[in-house]
Write a protein that binds this DNA or RNA. Sequence first.
DNA 1: CTGAAAGCGCTAACAA
DNA 2: TTGTTAGCGCTTTCAG
Lengths: 318, 318
Amino acid sequence: MTVSRVLRNRGDVSDATREKVLEAAKELGYVPNKIAGALASQRVNLVGVIVPSLSNLVFPEVLSGISQELEDTGLQPVFGVTNYSPEKEESVLYEMLSWRPSGLIIAGIEHTPAARAMLENAGAPVVEIMDVDGRGVDSVVGISHRRAGLHMAEAILAAGYRRIGFLGTKMPEDHRARKRLEGFEEGLAKAGITLADTEFYSGGSALLKGREMTEAMLKRTPDIDFLYYSNDMIGAGGLLWCLENGYDVPGKLGLAGFNGVDLLDGLPVRLATMDACRREIGRTAAQIIAGRPHQGLIGGEVVELEPVIQYGDTIRRA
Amino acid sequence: MTVSRVLRNRGDVSDATREKVLEAAKELGYVPNKIAGALASQRVNLVGVIVPSLSNLVFPEVLSGISQELEDTGLQPVFGVTNYSPEKEESVLYEMLSWRPSGLIIAGIEHTPAARAMLENAGAPVVEIMDVDGRGVDSVVGISHRRAGLHMAEAILAAGYRRIGFLGTKMPEDHRARKRLEGFEEGLAKAGITLADTEFYSGGSALLKGREMTEAMLKRTPDIDFLYYSNDMIGAGGLLWCLENGYDVPGKLGLAGFNGVDLLDGLPVRLATMDACRREIGRTAAQIIAGRPHQGLIGGEVVELEPVIQYGDTIRRA
DNA sequence: CTGAAAGCGCTAACAA
DNA sequence: TTGTTAGCGCTTTCAG
């Protein structure tokens, strides 16, 4: 049909006919059926994006980076959430692939064998994001959480802290938090130091949990001189508690979180943290997907971003 | 083909054949093509969800309520973000409808005429959420922001505060914040009172902005005795600033926010707020969409939820 | 520049 | 219980 040509601005159509079609379309409130279009053309302008959660500030920023970058590429992101469950990831992935998207962006490089197989046979570019510690299926964009933890350990040791506690989430499936902790312990081990205490939580208001865990740890292990939190939110809660209770921060007690969320800007004292390059990761991943059609399906790029430590006011400086 | 029957657990198929098909499917890594399926069956298991933003904590919770409720209905949510832009809303909506979803959940009841027309002709149940102040297209689930503002004004006046300032976002397209302010002013007007001062912001870290605006307003209008914030995040920033600067809260200065975010649980003092029923709204909207097929396409339900004031520690009690 | 015809990979209805 | 057939509403290709 000529109509099809007009609606997609393709092929040569006379202005007269074009106008007529456009007018009729508007009048009828016509919305083309992409299902049929996609089936016929074997092309779908959708990019599947799979993340574990929307509730912790970090993924919304990644998504917004993706949306922004995809803005005028004609591609549309479609989001799926797994709640850190590998089974849910598998089903969300299956569902997405059944729509034959033009690309897929998925958080993490740990997947069930079935999920991995699907990714390998996706027939579209796949970008695994957030984490570069391991082998990806196709392209990978992220930071090394292992090295992030390691560098933070070095910075803390360099500042002279020695009795160090770790506070984090109790989520076996949060591989990135796990890798940060492993890297952190490795960094401490190089100086012959082991963690003085650890505390884990799950669920609830992160800010509140940060308070509670901090109090519990400082009561239990009073000689601790540094608290390393697995995310900024619990770190902020801990920081507030320490300030209220008269701790000498960063003199006698140092603190650090992870992520670099802008919430920290509003705290009375700036928590030390490490920027996780969230928006940048989203943008880069989107660029890879959007650029692929031109460059062919070569794939396999690995982009490692470098998070930098923001010392803020909670690590004492030399 | 029999294959189709097996994969959808439909019709009568012998166990022998079923097994054979399943095995072959697994071996080939076969993923059915929903595009073709949808085209043939005229049914799509997708529910479009359109929200203005993912970065302010409130919508992620709505989405999570929706996901949760849709979990075992066979329906899949697909998210779109408009950044509070009516044009973006229009295009996202167009894009979504072109996939002929089984239902549509969209934030707000203010839309461009074109968007409204699309919603009316969507050919699927539509639920407009968050706000009930106005006329919706089909079903509506939300709270009255106008009355929320009004009730907060009454509570503040009842507590004896008289010199009241308002601090909020400068977003002409955030109709809900606008309605809350209008209701609030109406409540004050009933007692012959007008706002003593107002301050608006846009962009940046909300917590930090809350601090800055609070400082600015208290410097400019020192005799203010109550600060009403359009959201909890700036309220929390303001609260922290007031505490640090030795203000007598709630004795000489009261504060209140809006939303009831769980972040408030971690603050040294509990900010007064009003629960916006976010998760509940998401769940109810999802139920309407999921239930519609059974009940036919009657539609037009309006569910108004009742937000309640949480006084916390920042409004003095009688 | 415009029309006609084939077919994308499924589902639905029917026949065997 | 299984196979066959005709579309779903588009895009693509090929004729006019």
